[in-house]
Simulated assay, not measured.
Amino acid sequence: MLVIGIGAGDPEHLTLQAVKAIGRVDVFFVLDKGEVKGELVRLRRWMVEEYGRGGCRVVEVRDPERDRGAVGYVGAVEEWRSRRAEVFERFIGEELGEGETGGVLVWGDPGVYDSTLAILEEVLGRGVVAFEYEVVPGISSVSALTARHRTSLTQVGRPVHITTGRRLEAEGVGDVDDVVVMLDARCAFGGVSGFDIYWGAYLGTPDEILVSGAVEEVGERIREVRAEARERKGWIMDTYLLRRREPTE
């Protein structure tokens, strides 16, 4: 199996390593998230057609729905991952022939807030199917975000904290100067002051939106832009960096 990072949305985010890996795959596995996110599947199919070997196949399976109304968030995610693992297990056991290489095209980077690697480890742990897998890194939304805002992710001698909107809302920023926030459906930056924000949605796509400035000044604009974009497209993927402002005299 090859787990291939394909970048944050721009087809040119594909690395040379990823292009070569796509060319090695016999059967691609794609989780279909429904018509609302159909463009994510279409981009993957374009990459397969452009760089895949002749005769390779694409197997599409509907992605199991996660119970977003569940009381326990961690438990709901674990249950959802297990149902995904069952789907992967069937794909590997039923669709891959002897000596064939399977491939999964992962949005962004497989090692940054993505469940694919954990799911494959769960499949291996069940012992029903046996396989080996390689991981090809991709350009993450974090890398794309800082590049588009022409800023660095790190500052000299300072740590960077990567978290989720849920945890930011519950824990705040603490004493960290730079915080990357992902999976924030509720705009948790609203409870933060004294920070600049570098926000981006649909990074690397024609629908890309960028907003930056002091949280106190642009926070409401981000909320409005985000709500309008989600209403228009039916989904949104956004990421942002919070950077503490130096105190002024």
Rank of each mutant, 00 (worst) to 15 (best):
R126V: 08
V128F: 11
W199M: 03
G75F: 08
R230M: 15
V106D: 07
I119L: 05
E224W: 13
R223N: 03
E39I: 14
G99H: 05
A118G: 14
V181Y: 06
V176E: 01
V211E: 10
R42E: 14
A201M: 00
L203H: 03
Y202D: 02
E217C: 08
G93T: 04
T151W: 09
A170Y: 05
L183K: 10
E49L: 14
V129S: 00
W107E: 08
L43F: 02
E208P: 05
S82E: 15
P247E: 14
A214T: 00
T205M: 11
V136Q: 07
G172P: 03
R230N: 11
K233D: 04
R24Y: 01
E39A: 14
R166G: 00
F189H: 03
D207V: 01
V59E: 12
D175L: 10
D207Y: 13
V36F: 13
V104R: 07
D175A: 11
E216D: 07
R62S: 12
H149F: 08
E100M: 04
A185K: 11
E89L: 02
R186M: 12
E94I: 00
L2Q: 12
R42N: 13
R24V: 03
V59K: 10
L2F: 14
D238C: 07
S152T: 13
V160L: 14
G23Q: 11
G54F: 13
R24A: 13
S143W: 14
G234D: 05
F131R: 03
W46T: 05
Q155T: 09
F131L: 04
V173I: 12
E122M: 13
A76M: 06
V61R: 15
E98Q: 04
V41R: 13
A70D: 00
E49A: 15
G72M: 09
E78A: 13
L203T: 03
L183C: 09
C56T: 12
G97V: 10
E121D: 15
T164V: 02
D10A: 11
F195L: 00
E65M: 11
E100Y: 05
V192D: 04
L117A: 07
C56H: 03
L43R: 10
H161L: 15
G157Q: 04
G111P: 01
G234C: 09
E98L: 14
E224S: 14
G23I: 05
R245N: 03
G102K: 03
R83M: 09
R66M: 13
V112C: 11
Y202W: 07
E216Q: 06
E79V: 08
R167T: 09
G138R: 06
R167Y: 12
Q155E: 15
L153R: 02
G38Q: 11
V112P: 12
D207F: 11
V3G: 00
V179K: 01
V128P: 04
E49I: 02
G72A: 14
R57L: 07
R90F: 08
V48E: 06
M182E: 01
G75W: 05
L105M: 12
D178N: 10
R45I: 00
A70E: 02
M237Y: 15
R53W: 02
S141A: 15
R232Y: 11
V192L: 10
L96Q: 01
R223L: 09
R226Q: 10
V104W: 09
L105A: 08
P206E: 05
G34S: 04
R84S: 11
V30T: 11
A85M: 03
L120G: 07
G219S: 11
T163F: 07
G34N: 10
L2W: 14
E217H: 06
P11G: 08
P137K: 02
E208G: 02
